[in-house]
Design a protein around this nucleic acid. Sequence first.
DNA 1: TACATACATTAGGTATGACTAAAATATGAT
DNA 2: ATCATATTTTAGTCATACCTAATGTATGTA
Lengths: 227, 227
Amino acid sequence: MHQNIRQMLELTYSEENYLKAIFHLSEEGKKSVSTNDISAEMKTRPASVSDMLRKLGEKEVIEYRKYYGVHITEEGKKLALQTIRKHRLWEVFLVEKLNFSWDEVHEVADELEHIKSKILIQRLDEYLGFPKFDPHGDPIPDEYGDVRSRPRLPLSELEINATGQIVAVKDSSAAFLRYLDKVGAYIGARIKVMDKVEFDGSIEILVDNKKSIFMSKEVVNNILIMQ
Amino acid sequence: MHQNIRQMLELTYSEENYLKAIFHLSEEGKKSVSTNDISAEMKTRPASVSDMLRKLGEKEVIEYRKYYGVHITEEGKKLALQTIRKHRLWEVFLVEKLNFSWDEVHEVADELEHIKSKILIQRLDEYLGFPKFDPHGDPIPDEYGDVRSRPRLPLSELEINATGQIVAVKDSSAAFLRYLDKVGAYIGARIKVMDKVEFDGSIEILVDNKKSIFMSKEVVNNILIMQ
DNA sequence: TACATACATTAGGTATGACTAAAATATGAT
DNA sequence: ATCATATTTTAGTCATACCTAATGTATGTA
């Protein structure tokens, strides 16, 4: 079932980063991912992206048709999910064990995710108690790349008086996460929608049945809820 | 006192590895370290070493006189000790928290030691309880590069009936460490010399006042004792 | 349909870090 | 003091991963 018959192919540090970016961009509903999109995401020039796409195409982790963008292959998805698994496990470690705040973990996890040892990740997973979600509420793929994601919807779609629990954030930039910390919102917080302002899309919510906070449309769109 | 006035210079992954190797080779009492020594240690060709020495010389972490080997500078020592600090802290983590055996940690720590985040290492250190020695008994430099090493001598120099405690091993190859595990020797074990065989240099020791084991000259030379 | 413009690729260059082969230097033995 | 040998360095190559500048392709608008 889950065994790899052929040798898992090795990607360089850089190839791994590109593949992860392509995977994330693919997730956003787009059929194919453009060179410019990847260039923006990776902060490299489009010419560099073209180079890399050729290489990733040859390794068959993406399907690459010149001038028409790329599709990630099944093999590519598997590899990207392994990297994402490592990244999110390290994030859990940094927050749970080393007391990093959730806006500090990205950069460090971006380095740690490239450590190759398989046994390291297995034991880290075990040590952390096989967590299913990272500190931002994103699901952690298992060692076969399977993801159990929770059904979730943007906070903006909740009606007045509806309740739910914050399970994830879309934008996990340090600035946004620091804002959430400041107002007292966190992954797992139980919330209730008290009021919705049609005019500007802002809402008022009650956190953990005690604290009332106002959130702008921009913030509301970036918070995901499980009901 | 310990503040760095000028910007700490950045070394690449590879430069860091060479510098660490040069530091270790310097420790072995030699005045200067030869290109061939480094080549053997790093498993690269002498020509590649010459290239690297030029670069490290330009960055002033070593003093490089063509054809006469290299000396590590004070700046170089500082940087090497930072890498060694990271390596040994990660080894403690792997053994204490993730249940790695002490012969499995080297490779993984060799990757982890290059993660750059300073705050990561500070918090890891704290999380581990500011350990002073790694699982092989080697001292962990503090964040200023200071090392508190214990006075220690080779097991071979103990007289009959002398007692001591195993504090470190010289050779930390996986094969040697597995052998020690098998016979029940470990860092911290209290030992007593029961007999010394002049003929072949082997000895008989009592471990923790209960288990008697025989060790060949080769093994005895690789074990360090604190009395 | 033609073409301007946005987008993507190729060509050629740079730095790192490895290699082989050839040349230069040091050193020990006679 | 000379010379053979061992050691080290230089010269030239290759692969990765980036860059700029030039060129090629697709697409929507007139």
